[in-house]
């Protein structure tokens, strides 16, 4: 059974990537969302203070991430979940969605970082640390977002719910990562950030663990 779940996980993960690749317009939409919001920010602000840069970056990423992750379940036609329920292990399904979403959010972050640096300027003094903490935050974002997407998939007013349910639960991760980004922005010694990196990893582990525990209860139609 265990090896079966692993095999299912790999098959589902491959399915996520192929399905996304076949529907490139959805992926393109998400990436274009990032580019156009950055461009709007650039046109309104031109050059910004470093602290405003961080705020802009994370606001853009918060909205882009929630939009990107929202479609993991919301796009499903009614009955699709029932099909998965019959053939797949819930943990394999959630894990596949999770890994896919993490990779997607990493792509979005790299793109946002690149475009922001090109247009608005790049004030971050320790980019490696900045991207590393962003990458860790993506795990928490993906886990909360995927579970909340599965929750709001069942309700009547999906897109409103997605926003109001996910923003508050994303905030612990967001607060921590903004703190870390500020440290990286000022180029502080990396040892200063270890404490927060540890907290961020702990929050990630908590969110991923709880999401994995709760998902099997959600997907029974």
């Amino acid at each position: 059974m265990k090896s079966n779940a692993l095999k299912q996980f790999l098959a589902l993960l491959r399915h996520e990537f192929t399905a996304e690749w076949r529907q490139r317009n959805a992926l393109g939409g998400v990436l274009l969302y990032v580019v156009s919001t950055v461009f709007v920010a650039y046109l309104t602000f031109k050059r910004v203070e470093p602290l405003t840069w961080i705020a802009l970056y994370w606001i853009i990423l918060l909205f882009a991430s929630v939009n990107a992750v929202a479609k993991s379940f919301i796009q499903y036609a009614p009955g699709r979940m029932l099909y998965y329920y019959l053939v797949a292990d819930p943990l394999a399904l959630l894990a596949a969605k999770l890994v896919y979403n993490i990779v997607l959010l990493w792509t979005i972050q790299l793109l946002a970082f690149g475009v922001m640096s090109l247009l608005v300027g790049q004030p971050v003094q320790d980019p490696l640390m900045f991207l590393l903490s962003g990458g860790l935050a993506a795990i928490g974002f993906a886990a909360s977002g995927t579970l909340v997407s599965a929750i709001s998939h069942k309700a009547t007013n999906q897109s409103t719910l997605m926003a109001i349910l996910s923003f508050p639960v994303l905030l612990p991760v967001l607060t921590l990562v903004i703190k870390l980004s500020k440290n990286a922005l000022d180029g502080l010694d990396r040892s200063v950030s270890y404490d927060e990196l540890l907290s961020l990893s702990a929050v990630d582990a908590l969110v991923v663990g709880v999401a994995l525990l709760l998902f099997p209860y959600l997907w029974k139609e």
Binding site: L147, P168, P172, S199, L206, Y217
Partner: peptide
């Protein structure tokens, strides 16, 4: 499900 998830994120 949301209540448990919410409480778990309330702790940090």
């Amino acid at each position: 499900v949301y209540n448990i998830f919410a409480f778990a994120s309330l702790i940090p």
